[in-house]
């Protein structure tokens, strides 16, 4: 797939359709891949890589990139395309300045899961299609089935469909698929309020307020985040206490409600392994239940439930009906 991507990118550069390419760049090891912009065929040949470790969603970069001179080629996997469509809906990207090639994704790899098998000092990871062959300096030579080390978000993948594109690398387009992404949310809903509070306090107490979750999030594209604004009165670099720890995450979850496409980047990047996606998924599940099924980013036009009014919208008292405290 990578070879076809490079070949097509070179053609589009050569015929002037685009003047640069958004993709992923090789690193020191097999797995440390960085999103990057390529300008020439030589750069593409030398550094462009797209393997199962290329997990980063590149759509957010296109907010800025689409405002630069010329058109940029972007390879979007299904979840990235949802993020992009959502950014179109919010008028955050200039669609005409991006040439999109949709690429299929079977599921990306979580290298921490490979390491969690006790494999450290990794010398080499060979990609054998359905599995990896890992060699370490400690003499391990282990075959690891890819499915077992897939990112959690990919195990819960909602859709293989690319929702916005100029061309597809592979026909036919994928479909929205059956998934179990709300199971964990349902498990949390079944807890007592005290248990749930304890669960979240335990998780959020690890937060170091590095802001990786916010900065990677394609729904977080404010010019100035309220938490970066000295005049807001809530600006904080480090959470002073547990209340502030909670507040940052809860406000962020509210602010992306109806706009979060469930791309899973927040949980993927959190250095403290906080399952942030569960907060956002709770909102998604609630919206589905209260306003009818809605998937943010499924298309660039449909009105999101949070900014739409319909006579059959649920009443605010729904909180009590669903067992909330008065």
């Amino acid at each position: 797939m990578q070879d076809r991507m490079i070949a097509r990118a070179k053609e589009l550069l050569a015929d002037g359709t685009v003047n640069r390419v958004m993709g992923w760049q090789k690193g020191e090891f097999t797995y440390d891949i960085t999103p990057a912009v390529f300008h020439t065929a030589e750069e593409l040949d030398r550094d462009f890589v797209c393997n199962d470790f290329a997990a980063a969603n590149v759509s957010k970069y296109l907010v800025k990139e689409s405002r630069k001179e010329g058109r940029i080629l972007a390879f979007l996997k299904p979840c990235d395309s949802y993020s992009f469509a959502q950014l179109m809906k919010e008028h955050r990207v200039l669609r005409e300045n991006v040439y999109i090639i949709g690429i299929p994704s079977w599921g990306k790899t979580d290298f921490e899961k490979i390491k969690a098998r006790g494999l450290s000092g990794i010398k080499n990871i060979k990609d054998n299609g359905a599995d990896y062959f890992v060699e370490t300096v400690y003499g391990d030579e282990v075959t690891v089935p890819k499915y077992e080390v897939m990112l959690d978000r990919c195990k819960d993948c909602k859709s293989k469909k690319i929702v916005v594109y100029d061309e597809l690398l592979e026909e036919p387009n994928g479909d929205v698929i059956e998934n179990h992404r709300f199971d964990e949310v349902a498990r949390l809903e079944a807890m007592t309020p005290d248990e749930r509070f304890a669960f979240w306090r335990n998780e959020l107490s690890r937060c170091i307020r590095c802001n990786a979750c916010r900065n990677v999030c394609p729904a977080c594209t404010c010019e100035k985040c309220v938490f970066d604004n000295r005049d807001s009165g809530v600006e904080n670099k480090a959470a002073a206490d547990s209340f502030e720890e909670n507040m940052f995450h809860i406000i962020r979850a509210f602010h992306v409600a109806g706009r979060c496409t469930d791309c899973g980047e927040c949980s993927r990047v959190c250095p403290q392994h906080i399952p942030l996606h569960l907060l956002n998924r709770k909102f998604i599940k609630d919206m589905n239940e209260l306003y009818g099924d809605y998937q943010a980013g499924a298309d660039p036009d449909t009105r999101p439930p949070m900014t739409d009014f319909r006579f059959d919208d649920c009443e605010p008292s729904v909180v009590y009906e669903r067992g909330g405290a008065k």
């Binding site: 802001n211 990786a212 250095p271």
Partner: peptide, 12 residues
């Protein structure tokens, strides 16, 4: 170019 400015690197 692709740095998110998140500060994770400085906090860890």
């Amino acid at each position: 170019e692709s740095c998110l400015g998140c500060g994770t690197c400085t906090f860890v």
